[in-house]
């Protein structure tokens, strides 16, 4: 499955400044795994030491938080848009 990832400003230093990146995988775990292989500097910002999703990183498939869709096992299909966003306090500006 080929998906498009949207990279937040805070992570772009690790993607050579790219705001969107294409990646492949059948699950969010596979997509993020392929992303971290292509951009190794991203790895500590994607995953905790135990391999789980970084606690301050929220990952959305088409606006749905993957933590409630099975986490790293959440499935993706061709054309999905995967958005990475840092966790911030409620009351964030629009």
């Amino acid at each position: 499955m080929a998906v498009t990832l949207r990279i937040p400003t805070v992570l772009r230093p690790a993607t050579g400044g790219r705001a969107t990146v294409d990646a492949v995988g059948a699950t969010i775990g596979e997509v993020l795994g392929s992303l971290s292989q292509e951009y190794p500097a991203l790895t500590p910002q994607l995953f905790n030491d135990d391999g789980s999703l970084h606690r301050f990183l929220n990952v959305y498939v088409n606006d749905d938080d993957v933590r409630y869709l099975g986490g790293l096992a959440a499935p993706v299909v061709d054309g999905d848009e995967v958005t990475l966003l840092p966790a911030v306090a409620g009351g964030a500006s629009a």
């Binding site: 937040p8 400003t9 805070v10 992570l11 910002q45 970084h54 606690r55 301050f56 990183l57 929220n58 938080d65 966003l85 840092p86 966790a87 911030v88 306090a89 409620g90 009351g91 964030a92 500006s93 629009a94």
Partner: peptide, 21 residues
């Protein structure tokens, strides 16, 4: 329902500046 976080998120210096209540 999470509000869109747009410009404010862009102001973060590092992922470690994130916050979970």
């Amino acid at each position: 329902i999470e509000p869109p976080s747009g410009e404010m998120v862009d102001g973060l210096r590092s992922l470690e500046d994130g916050y979970i209540p």
